[in-house]
Design a protein around this nucleic acid. Structure first.
Lengths: 182, 182
DNA sequence: TATTGCTGCGCAATCCGTTGAATAAGTAGT
DNA sequence: ACTACTTATTCAACGGATTGCGCAGCAATA
């Protein structure tokens, strides 16, 4: 139940529209919490009803009108209250890992194929995270420290995943050789 | 959407009751996919309606009666079909990380306190996973390979997390020194 | 010119998941 | 004797999340 808090965190720094937030959820914060635009618009509506955020209507020409949201005092209080109490441990739901656990049913080749696809994705992510981290590091702005630490988490995560993938590959190749030579 | 498949994976090896499955979700598979007993019972009901599993009623004395579920042909087909198509990337929802991202609002000490709590949890998990992995390695049964690989994933994950936690600690300590000396 | 893609907001139906509780009987500990 | 835990299943209520759809206009590309 902390999509609301993720939104409040983002609104802390700048005023933003639902669309802006959706983009950030697809990138920066998406590393840690993801959400679709429908959820975000819905949650913004609720937050507004509860006076945690307020908005001003911006007519635009060429583009559709937009609503720029900003956090209120009440919103900031709520956020601080939330930050103080311990977070619930994240629940894990990794479909690919379920496949691995049930891997005895699949043939090695199809597992390896999907493993490679996933590895490509992870490698890509790793590079974008590293590039962003390097940029932040060069700028050396103190207030970016937490963004940097979040990125480091993502980087270490991808690296660990890729390392694991190598282990899987060597293990399955060994198995393959044993079974074909038998 | 793949709680059903996680259940089918478990039912592959042995006939089990909802209660048995719930225990396994709390341990082995819980590493990868977690679910409460309510969800499991509900899903077993649906799977039964769709003829993916069937059960026999076991009256017991001393204990409540139970239903022992087993996978059907249709269930196995469904599982294989699912294994063949690529898994959706896991959605990430880590409340603690949202806190880190919004960390500029908190004071370092409260972050460090929660970090330590989380680290304890991770270290504990790491040890149980390592112990299980060692056991499997000693037995060296070929059919346990995938359970072993799943455990390895968990181990590398915890290690990466703990490594990250160290980075956070040193970064926040540096910051603390700078701000108090200023 | 037709199609795709981006900016921007929203609704409705449905499904998934969590919380909380009820029932029922045995066993183990204080 | 009382409490707490384990085995075993199920229901009800609510809220969160996903999927699919719709509107609207501009810009750029094929």
């Amino acid at each position: 139940m902390s999509l609301r808090h993720a939104i409040l965190v983002l609104l802390q720094d700048q005023e933003a529209s639902g669309y802006d937030l959706a983009r950030e959820f697809a990138n920066s914060i998406g590393l840690v919490w993801n959400a679709t635009h429908q959820q975000i618009y819905l949650e913004l509506g609720k937050l507004n009803d509860q006076h945690m955020v307020k908005f001003r209507h911006i007519p635009q020409d060429g583009k559709p009108d937009k609503k720029l949201y900003r956090i209120t005092e009440e919103g900031r209080d709520e956020l601080i209250r939330w930050l103080r109490k311990p977070a619930a441990p994240p629940r894990i739901r990794d479909a690919f890992m379920v496949k691995i656990a049930g891997g005895a049913l699949s043939d090695s080749s199809s597992i390896l194929r999907e493993l490679d696809d996933q590895a490509d994705l992870r490698r890509e992510r790793l590079h974008t995270f590293e590039a962003l981290a390097r940029k932040l590091d060069e700028q050396g702005r103190e207030k970016d420290l937490f963004t940097y630490l979040t990125l480091r988490r993502g980087i270490l995560d991808q690296q660990a995943w890729l390392h694991w993938a190598d282990e899987v590959k060597t293990a399955l190749n060994k198995r393959e050789i044993l079974s074909t030579s038998a």
